[in-house]
Design a protein around this nucleic acid. Sequence first.
DNA 1: CGCGACGTTGATTTGCCTCAACGATTGTGG
DNA 2: CCACAATCGTTGAGGCAAATCAACGTCGCG
Lengths: 193, 193
Amino acid sequence: MDSMVRDVFKDFNLNDVEINMISEGLEAIELKKKAFLITPGKDVQHIYYIRRGCLRTYYLDDSGKEHTLQFAVEGWWISDYIALFGRERLKAISYIECIQDASLLKISKNDFDNLCERIPKVSGFHIRNLERAFAAFHRRILENLTLPAKDRYVNFVKTYPNIEQLVKNYHIASFLGITTESLSRIRKELALQ
Amino acid sequence: MDSMVRDVFKDFNLNDVEINMISEGLEAIELKKKAFLITPGKDVQHIYYIRRGCLRTYYLDDSGKEHTLQFAVEGWWISDYIALFGRERLKAISYIECIQDASLLKISKNDFDNLCERIPKVSGFHIRNLERAFAAFHRRILENLTLPAKDRYVNFVKTYPNIEQLVKNYHIASFLGITTESLSRIRKELALQ
DNA sequence: CGCGACGTTGATTTGCCTCAACGATTGTGG
DNA sequence: CCACAATCGTTGAGGCAAATCAACGTCGCG
């Protein structure tokens, strides 16, 4: 477990004591493709670090359509952040589904908060991640406001080339906010150019 | 300045030493309606806390259309987060415009990072804010994916009733990702019901 | 008062959706 | 390992929500 922790925090030069403290709250889990990490209504208490594999968070609306909020691959964190980080603690509203067999590290938000308080490097780590994610979200919202579907797809492929090859067509469509049919047509158009 | 700091961090019970440390990096500034805090191309080094007034961040696309990323009122923080929090330090890409005469507190990202390292309460404060904002962003993206324009407007009014009365119609339209004409028609429809 | 900024309304266009049918690919049990 | 089914992706026809273009009221400010 210690070497995993060292890997997660690789830019932060943790000492042995700190690594031990962190390891205590961690649990390694394996997840098979198509398995669910979280489903709507469940109590969300944990954040998950992805050592290997690929997952996605999606919301299922009343009419049965899926809307992909997030993909996550090696080195990313995933959870139902609306439930976990919101002002009021809510139950999960989304699904988190395994897209490719995955190895995860699981830690409770409580334990993580405690580590943040006790180990400045951990809070530094958390802040860095949150800030970067924050910038990325601003970008995504801006793109959604600014660009037509075709350009959003092109950007997606450019930004996440590794994810594009891994996931289904309709996963990408639901991430971009379009239908599979539209995405299919967009791809055709791009292929012709 | 000290009482202002106490006010910003009111849930965190700072002691006098901490308050002094924080005050050192702060600068109070006043901004008149229609003034710009940030314009594209500028170097972004600061975060701004709003004590009074209202501002908005918007992006101007190639075709001359405005896209509002964020409104901010009393008690909120504002900056060009894509530039400030992104992986690479970029120049500003957006405008931040004063919508209502404002009193701000200005602090450089550098100073703030240092305070985070030296005062756990400050990093706790920052983490709490980032996490909440993070959840809010997830919500906004989900809404944009899920809901038609009319429902997004209804939600906006419900979520930010104070902002709705303060800003121009076309500010809201560009926040929701629709045209002023569409918003006008939506309002008409809602008024009839 | 008069001008410019803002909001509304109407006519038309368009990007994307919906519905439907049909290939292609994947996975599974015999 | 093949056969078949289920899942996934593509294509076409038609429809709709919202954009565009254009004109006109209205409000606020110099």
